[in-house]
Design a protein around this nucleic acid. Sequence first.
DNA 1: GCCGGTTAGTTACAAATGAAACCGATGTCA
DNA 2: TGACATCGGTTTCATTTGTAACTAACCGGC
Lengths: 145, 145
Amino acid sequence: MSTPFDLAKFLPYRLAVAAQAVSARFARRYSEAFGLTIPEWRVLAVLGGFGTTHAQRLTALTTMDKVKVSRAVAKLAAAGLVQRQPDPEDGRRVLLALTPKGEQLYRDIVPLAQAMQEELLAELPPAGREALDEALRLLSRSPKS
Amino acid sequence: MSTPFDLAKFLPYRLAVAAQAVSARFARRYSEAFGLTIPEWRVLAVLGGFGTTHAQRLTALTTMDKVKVSRAVAKLAAAGLVQRQPDPEDGRRVLLALTPKGEQLYRDIVPLAQAMQEELLAELPPAGREALDEALRLLSRSPKS
DNA sequence: GCCGGTTAGTTACAAATGAAACCGATGTCA
DNA sequence: TGACATCGGTTTCATTTGTAACTAACCGGC
């Protein structure tokens, strides 16, 4: 007879559940404290760390498709956190950068994010951290076949 | 000066990316081979392993809210994979069970799912597996504060 | 038995998402 | 230069998802 199947032990399921739990936990705080969604937070985080860039690079660095990036940027721009200007070198591109207000928010939110991450890591056994790190790296590669 | 922030090293982000990559990989195959979405697959998996139950238990065992379960069940019922009947002991409840066709699908899909999982695990270093297991378990707990 | 509160599940409506169409700008190759 | 494929980014539309309202059934006290 075949091995019984247990969804609770199924890796894709477990990964999805863990990611969802962690995301929800963080999303709630970003939202409560700063009114940001996760896509917006990702864009802010990259722009804050990276400086001025165009949207295409954001799609690569946030692992979101260009539609999602476009929408997140539009929201941030509407909130006065991001400023757009045409790229003089390529008329198709739009250069994106944080406004002073956006930079301020970035400076406020990063320590919180780091604290949350510490809090999360503190719940894990030290030995598990590198393992998790490595596993996430391997699992994140795009489907091979 | 504060530690620079790098989204690519941020645990919630990495977890989301990994889960998304794995889910996409699996979802594509469920969908191609059997026409199932992930919620439907989850319901099928639980019903197949657990036997007859009511929807409420499915919400617990699939970590999906009752609306999502309800919709997945409706789809499966429409496809003739699940049969519903009123619970004689509680008129509010609906007892759910796989039809013979549903059981057949279950028998077909479980080996595939297990094979996919093996394939995935094979990409991970053996030492990391228990660590990953433990980490996912800890991270999946609902937000504490 | 009846009334208020709760539970199981579905439905309705709004927000988020993804795929594809679209538009202006660029590059290229004859 | 001019036709054509491609690229960056936005918009449109269909689907998915989440939240809240709703219906029917149960449960308790009275």
